[in-house]
Each structure stands twice: as structure tokens, then as C-alpha cells.
Amino acid sequence: MNTTSLKNFLVSFSGIAVLLFLYFPLVVIVLFSFNADTVNSFPIQHFSLKWYSVLFRDDELLQSIGTSISIALISTAVALLIGIPAAYAMHKYDFKGKKLIDKIVLMPITLPGIVTGVAMLSFFPFVGVKISLTAVTFGHITFLCAIVVTQMLARFKRLDPYLEQAAYDLGATPSATFFKVILPNIKTAIIGCVLLCLVLSMDEIPVTFFLIAGNNTLPLEIYAMMRRGITPEVNAISTLIFIFSTTAILLSMRLNKEK
């Protein structure tokens, strides 16, 4: 082997090694979810689906899934209702404070979750939102707005600006233009955005951690299970979440790329 191909090999090897590092832990979870044993030791002796059946008999876990789904659906819907019109206005008009809104809307993503969490924890009761699943939902809506606004703004920017003008030119009023020309053309992006929001809401911890009272959401239930000790059941639910999230995210990426 000459030096050039050795160098090439080393570069490719280290690149692939890092990629494997990114996926190795996930593969481990999936593999061990089929481990019949209670300890996650090497090598796996027997394979079984028993942890999946345990999963479906765990009432608390099932309830937390229900809780997470409801919160995700409600907060995604509200975030879309608030976020899409605002993104449209931010795309279409120039106004003072646009940059500021842009910065503020992103704060739940750019600033550390712990600060956002404790800030909401301290302030929500003042506006009559008690620390509860409602508070969690409100927190989720707030950070999902960041997702909706950025994703939809990016989509509007990619839209041919002349489509809207062509609609006006042909006599369509602004609302007819929005519903007949704009909306059908951003439909796929909206679906992509919905999937992303659902996944992010179902996985959210930092804000939920501080605002929750009563029933757990799914990630917090997993957190609780982990604190109680590693139960192989967590492997199984993690595998299911992993499959669900990956599918939704890949779908969302694909939809967002569509013209």
C-alpha cells in the first residue's frame, strides 16, 4: 500500500468510525431489547420478545404514552395555528421588530432548557397556569412555535414569490390567494412540520421536568424507570420510540424537501 492510499484509508476509516460511534449505542438498545436476560451483559445468551409483552402490561407506562400523545397533539395544533400565520406575515411584510421577534421565538431553542424551565416554573402561576399538565402543554406550545415559525418561514422563502403576485393579478383576494395558492403549495411542509413537532413534544424533557405535576409524560416515565434501576423494559420502549421517531423524522425531512 503506498502512502496516498494509506492516508485515504485512515481518513475514511476514522470518518466511518465516528459514524459508527453515533449509531452504536442505538444499536445496543435495539439488540438488548430482545435479550431474554435481566442484565444487559455481553454476550447475549437468549433472544426473546418478553420485554415487549411486559411493556404492554405496564399501566403506568401506557398511561404516560397517552399523556404524551395528548400533549403533543394539542400543543402541535396550537403552535401551528399561532405559528403559520405569523411566519406568513414575517415572510410577506417588512416591519419594525421583525428581527426581534425572530430572536425571541428562537429563545427556547437557543437558551439553555434549564433557564427556560425555571423561568416558566416561576412565572406561570402568576398568569393563572398552575404547575400541571396544562403548564407542560403551554411550555410545549412555546417551544414548538420556534420550530413552526422557522420551518414554515424557510418554506415560504422557497416558494416562488411570483405565484402570489400571479394570483392577485388574476383577481384573487388575499384570502383566496392564501387558501387556493399558498396553502396547497406548503401542504407537504406543514405535514413535515407536524411530524417534527409531534416527535419533539413527545421527547421533551427540560421544560416538562419543571412544569409537571400529576401524571408523567413518556420521557419522564422512562426517566423514573431508569432511576428505579435499569429495567430491560426500558430497552423495549426505547426501541419503539426510536423506530417511531426515526420514521417520523425521515418522513418529515423528505416532505420538507419537496417543492
Binding site: 405565484l163 403576485q165 400571479a166 394570483a167 392577485y168 393579478d169 388574476l170 384573487a172 383576494t173 396547497p184
Partner: peptide
């Protein structure tokens, strides 16, 4: 007058055909 109330129509350089129709 806003564009949608004017009795003139435009052929756009990039055509601006509605891709969904």
C-alpha cells in the same frame, strides 16, 4: 387600487404557473 381589482393581467417572466394545479 390593489392588483386583484385591476383590469390588467400579467405574463410573468418565470411564468409563475401554480404548481398545484
Amino acid at each position: 387600487l390593489p392588483p386583484y381589482k385591476r383590469h390588467v393581467n400579467t405574463v410573468f417572466q418565470n411564468y409563475a404557473l401554480f404548481p398545484n394545479m
